[in-house]
Design a protein around this nucleic acid. Structure first.
Lengths: 142, 142
DNA sequence: TTTCGTGCAAACTATTTGCATATCA
DNA sequence: TGATATGCAAATAGTTTGCACGAAA
């Protein structure tokens, strides 16, 4: 599997876009973080490494990373778009504790298959789906 | 089953809030519309019936309707929160055409059941879920 | 008759964009 | 060299909020 940095560089070249130190740094920072980062959060980390980088560049780069398939936007419906590295990772959905915010990655073949079937039954070609389960985790229920 | 208007009145009384002509009109307008309305869209309809009503009142009332269980907020990830009447209606998910915006209500017992099981396997008590399937419909594929 | 609601406009938050300058290919 | 990227600040879009006045319980 290609390194993410190479994937990004190739994507940029393909689109007649350019690799820059900013883009390299933002991708690197994104990949080093675990879990789900908002643009704002990523911006904070990025600024620690290069305080001259502007917030707009982070927004713009995240869009590129998303278009190139390296990260995936998540939508927990709190008004903030978060991203997670997705390159080389299996698809998964999310199980979220409404009390403590705990966020567990889940995957279920039965559901995935039924989603395909359901779409087909309605004449749709399925492109993607979003599934979020919200509940209270065991710790919070104690 | 109680009338939605009564449900709303009771909810308000319970919360020490008041029924007003505006709230009555907004609920009534919401229920008369089919499908998924944003606050902005609802505001346009509401203004046709009473042009003195302010947009903030529509936002505030939608929140109350949501809290009282009469309507449900939807999140199609386009930056706009939409609502649909949910009182007395069965739960369902959405299958959305990315090209024409067609929006089909779907429901699948197998998926619903697996969602419960998945949550339980992780120690969660499931409160709710969101599932959106995105694809291209037959018409748009022609 | 007091608490709550309303309309208005201003405030807010997340994100996007215009522009002059700086940088990559 | 010429197209693209950057940082900044201003602009945008959806939504929320402060306030003085008006209305429901």
């Amino acid at each position: 599997m290609k390194a993410p940095q190479d994937v990004f560089t190739e994507y940029l070249a393909n689109e007649n876009l350019k690799m820059t130190p900013q883009r390299r740094l933002i991708l690197d920072t994104m990949l080093k973080q675990e879990g789900h980062l908002s643009s704002e959060e990523l911006y904070v980390y990025v600024k620690k490494r290069d305080s001259s980088i502007g917030q707009a560049t982070v927004y713009r780069t995240l869009k590129l990373l998303s278009d190139s398939g390296l990260v995936e936007p998540l939508d927990f419906a709190d008004g903030v778009t978060r991203y997670e590295p997705s390159y080389g990772k299996d698809h998964h959905d999310h199980l979220i504790c409404e009390r403590c915010g705990k966020n567990i990655e889940i995957l279920d073949d039965t559901i995935e298959r039924r989603q395909e079937e359901l779409a087909a039954e309605h004449g749709f070609t399925l492109l993607k789906h979003k599934m979020y389960l919200y509940g209270i985790c065991a710790d919070c229920r104690k």
